[in-house]
Design a protein around this nucleic acid. Structure first.
Ligand SMILES: [Zn+2]
Ligand SMILES: [Zn+2]
Ligand SMILES: [Zn+2]
Ligand SMILES: [Zn+2]
Lengths: 151, 151
DNA sequence: GACGGTTTTGTTATGTTATAACACAAAACG
DNA sequence: CGTTTTGTGTTATAACATAACAAAACCGTC
């Protein structure tokens, strides 16, 4: 994410938190920035390492607490299959999205596919299941990396 | 899973492995039995604990190696969102299924929903994404537990 | 049935991810 | 202000997973 886009995201996050009456503290802000600046999904300990630049001797709970907050607010997502975190591409509205995770280059694409959402909702209601959270992660090779194979 | 059903599953697993020319060794067999006997998803360390009954002083690699084999053969599935393993409900054919995981009672239901599969495939091909593995886990409250709420 | 390659297992150690618990500080609110 | 709530610092530990290498078991061939 370039610095311009990052600024937008941070501004949007500030606004959202203000609206919701929750506090985007400096630490939470830092973690959100680090996650969004990163080109790739970041593990909690990756983030922890980066925090050493701005925080003295941070410990795991520091970063996990910030991540918990950001997850609750829908500002970041956790990729369960790779134990890593990414900034949300469109935090404005609540959503459960889908992730295309390239096992080759590590790139992640967040989708909000209505057809997938619909089919999931149908299956849930057919089972009488009340979802709280949806994890949809497709792991494979992205278009760019598939192209590279042919070179 | 009752003992009759377990026997069926084990027999089916034996047959599948024979067909494929891979070895369902005693350890792998034990792990598969333990996973299938369990009412709930089992963590690797849960399995490890149970193995102490039949194996002397088993170590983590023992159980992880067996699980890796069983995952490759499609005899068990890993639930990424809860770091646990379940026996496959229908190992006969290769498939990527969906899981309804009750956060309340821990029960897991494995679906093979064609509409979900279709919508995922569509999204993948629209993105030029070549999937290797699909993780679809819906976490919430099952029908039974929802019913209990009303009592 | 001895040989040699391959696969599986045993064992020790370590790496990685995540949380518990409790003391302290800062902010919110009357 | 004083009180309550919320956030942070710190230490320790729990939970999940793999690396590395030696020993054993298996499998095809001679
Ligand atoms: Zn999002
Ligand atoms: Zn790629
Ligand atoms: Zn299955
Ligand atoms: Zn339930």
């Amino acid at each position: 994410m370039d610095s311009e886009r990052l600024a937008q995201v941070m501004q949007r996050a500030e606004a959202l938190c203000r609206e919701r009456g929750v506090r985007l503290t400096p630490q939470r802000r830092t973690v959100l920035e680090l996650v969004c600046e990163a080109e790739r999904p970041m593990s909690a300990y990756d983030i922890l390492d980066l925090m050493r630049a701005s925080v003295s001797n941070p410990a795991p709970p520091t970063v996990y607490r910030a991540l918990d907050f950001l997850l609750e607010q829908g500002l970041v997502h956790k990729l369960e299959s790779i134990h890593a975190f990414v900034g949300c591409s469109h935090p404005d509205h609540p959503h459960s999205s889908q992730f295309l995770i390239c096992a080759d280059c590590g790139d992640v694409n967040e989708l909000e596919d209505p057809a997938i959402a619909r089919s999931l909702r149908l299956a849930e209601s057919a089972s009488g299941f009340a979802p709280k959270r949806r994890v949809v992660e497709l792991i494979g090779t992205c278009a760019r990396c598939t192209g590279k194979d042919h070179e």
